[in-house]
Amino acid sequence: MIRILAVDDDIHMLNFVATELRQTGYEVVEATSGEEALQLLESETMDLAVVDVMMPGMNGFELTRIVRTEYDLPVILLTARHHIEDKERGFLAGSDDYLVKPFEAKELLYRVKAILRRYNHPEDDLLIVGSLTIDLKSYEVRSINGILFIPLKEFELLALLASKPRQVLSRDLIIESVWGIDFQGDEQTVSVHIKRLRQRLERFSPDVHIVTVRGVGYKLEVSG
C-alpha cells in the first residue's frame, strides 16, 4: 500500500488531509512538526510527503530540502500564502507541487495521484476490463468518463474480480482475499460492497457488470 507522510502543525488541516487520503485508500502517517517528520522517516518508508510551509521550528521549505536530499521523496507543499516568491522557494527547495489553502479535497487527490504516476510508473500494474482501467499502484479506477475514487475495500474487491474476468469467485474466497481469514463479519458485508460497486459502475463504466451466480458467488463480465 502507498504510504504518505502528512506534516502540519494545524491539527484541523492535518486531520482533513489525512482523512481524505485514507478514504482514497492510502496509508497515512501524521506528524505535527518538521522534526517529528524526520524522526519518522528514520524508521519508516514513505512514498510521498504532503508538507505545510508555515510551521514553527523547522518550516516546510527546510523540511522539503532534507526530504528531497536525504530520502528522495516527492513533496507537495501546502501554504496559505499566494506570493510567487513562496512558490519559487518551494520549487527551489525541491517540491514537486504546490497547493494554496483553502483547497478542495479533489484537488489534493489529483495532485497526489499525478505525482505518484510520475514516480512509480504504475502502467506496469494495470488491470483492463472493457472500458475500465484499474491502476493497482495509484489506486485509480479510470474510464472515458474520468477517474473514479472509491473506498479501499471496494477497490480491492473490484481489483480481485477484474483479475479473474468471467471467473466465478465464491463469497468465501472474496472474504478471505479482501478482508482476511480473521474477518469477524458475515457475508452481508460482501453483498453491501457488491451493491455499492454495481451502482458506481452503472454510471461510470456501464459496459462492465458484476454478475451474481446464485449459490456460488460473483464474476465480472463485459457487455457489447
Results as ranks from 00 to 15, higher is better:
I4N: 02
A6V: 10
A6D: 04
A6W: 01
D8F: 08
D9H: 05
D9M: 09
I11Y: 11
N15M: 11
T19F: 12
E20W: 09
E20P: 04
E20N: 15
Q23N: 14
T24V: 09
T24F: 06
G25K: 03
E27D: 15
V28G: 07
V29I: 15
E30P: 03
S33Q: 08
A37P: 06
L38Y: 12
Q39F: 10
E42P: 07
S43H: 15
T45M: 11
D47H: 09
V51P: 02
V51Q: 01
D52R: 02
N59P: 01
G60F: 01
E62C: 06
E62M: 07
E62K: 11
E62S: 11
T64A: 03
T64M: 03
R65W: 07
R65M: 12
R68D: 04
E70K: 13
D72Y: 10
L73A: 04
V75K: 00
V75N: 00
I76M: 07
L77I: 07
L78N: 06
L78E: 06
A80G: 15
A80Q: 10
H83M: 11
H83T: 13
E85Q: 15
E88A: 00
R89E: 10
A93I: 01
L99E: 11
V100Y: 10
P102L: 06
E104M: 12
A105I: 09
L109T: 07
V112K: 03
I115H: 05
I115S: 05
R117H: 09
R118F: 04
N120E: 08
E123M: 05
E123H: 05
D125Y: 03
L126N: 01
I128T: 15
I134R: 01
Y139Q: 02
S143D: 00
I144C: 08
I147Q: 06
K153V: 06
K153Y: 12
A159D: 01
A159V: 04
S163Q: 11
S170A: 12
D172R: 15
D172H: 13
L173N: 10
I175D: 06
S177W: 03
S177E: 14
V178P: 03
W179K: 12
D182M: 11
D182A: 13
Q184S: 13
G185I: 08
Q188C: 07
T189R: 14
V190Y: 06
K195Q: 12
R198I: 04
E202D: 14
R203A: 08
R203M: 05
D207E: 02
D207G: 00
V213T: 14
G215P: 05
G215C: 10
V216C: 04
V216W: 04
G217A: 11
Y218Q: 05
L220C: 09
V222I: 13
G224S: 13
